[in-house]
Amino acid sequence: SMETDNFDNLLLIYYTVGIITLLTRIVIIEGVCEKEAYSLSDAYLGLNFKKLKVEPIQFICEIVENFMILIENEKFYKYNSQLVNKIINYVKNNVNSNLKVIQIANHFHISPEYLSYHFKNVTGMSLKSFINQEKIEFSKYLLSSTDLTIMEITIALNYTDQSYFSKVFKKYTKVSPSQY
């Protein structure tokens, strides 16, 4: 009858919202940036479940899969140091600002010496190299997806001058920005 159908729907909605909430917490515990986790969660919670054109089970599988993808994307830098994971997130979220070891140390209220030592100890890579690597990754995106000039990208990523930026770019990618 009509009633049971309606009840089923409500129950399904209730469970679906529960799953989304749970998955959001799980991926954050797994090291996914909160901003990313909540924006995926909000995208789903903002939908009108009653108007969905897909089967509930198919919809729930899609939700789980998309949250899993978030975790997979984070996995390549999941270290067993919460501080290091926070620093990595901080660098990724502030890649276009003037990132210096001392400024990051101040942000996390630790000494630059300890920060550098701890980061290298945990990741096997110096923090300075990691910052450059992230900036170069971002500049590759800017070079391929925008019409910014190399000079504009140099300024956007807070490099002192274009030749220094090109040198760093070449070190990490083996080609010059213009070749890229």
Rank of each mutant, 00 (worst) to 15 (best):
2 M>I: 09
6 N>I: 12
6 N>D: 10
6 N>F: 12
6 N>V: 11
7 F>Y: 15
7 F>H: 13
11 L>F: 14
11 L>I: 14
11 L>V: 14
17 V>E: 10
19 I>S: 04
20 I>D: 07
21 T>A: 13
23 L>A: 08
24 T>S: 12
27 V>Q: 03
27 V>N: 04
27 V>C: 09
28 I>N: 09
28 I>T: 12
31 G>W: 06
33 C>Q: 14
33 C>F: 12
34 E>Q: 13
35 K>R: 15
41 S>D: 06
47 L>N: 10
48 N>R: 14
51 K>G: 05
52 L>V: 12
53 K>V: 06
54 V>H: 12
58 Q>F: 09
58 Q>D: 09
65 E>N: 15
65 E>C: 10
65 E>A: 12
67 F>G: 01
67 F>S: 04
70 L>R: 13
72 E>C: 02
73 N>D: 10
74 E>H: 13
76 F>K: 11
77 Y>F: 02
82 Q>N: 13
83 L>V: 02
86 K>Q: 14
87 I>S: 00
88 I>G: 00
89 N>P: 05
90 Y>W: 14
91 V>G: 04
91 V>A: 06
93 N>W: 03
95 V>P: 02
95 V>L: 02
96 N>K: 15
97 S>F: 01
100 K>L: 06
101 V>C: 05
105 A>Y: 07
106 N>M: 05
107 H>P: 02
109 H>T: 08
110 I>C: 01
114 Y>K: 11
114 Y>Q: 09
115 L>T: 02
116 S>Q: 10
119 F>C: 01
121 N>D: 02
125 M>E: 14
126 S>T: 15
127 L>I: 15
129 S>L: 04
133 Q>H: 15
134 E>P: 04
135 K>D: 01
135 K>Q: 12
135 K>T: 03
137 E>I: 03
141 Y>W: 11
148 L>S: 04
149 T>C: 07
150 I>W: 01
152 E>Y: 04
156 A>P: 02
158 N>R: 13
160 T>Y: 13
160 T>F: 07
163 S>V: 11
168 V>E: 05
169 F>N: 04
169 F>Q: 07
171 K>H: 13
178 S>W: 06
180 Y>H: 13
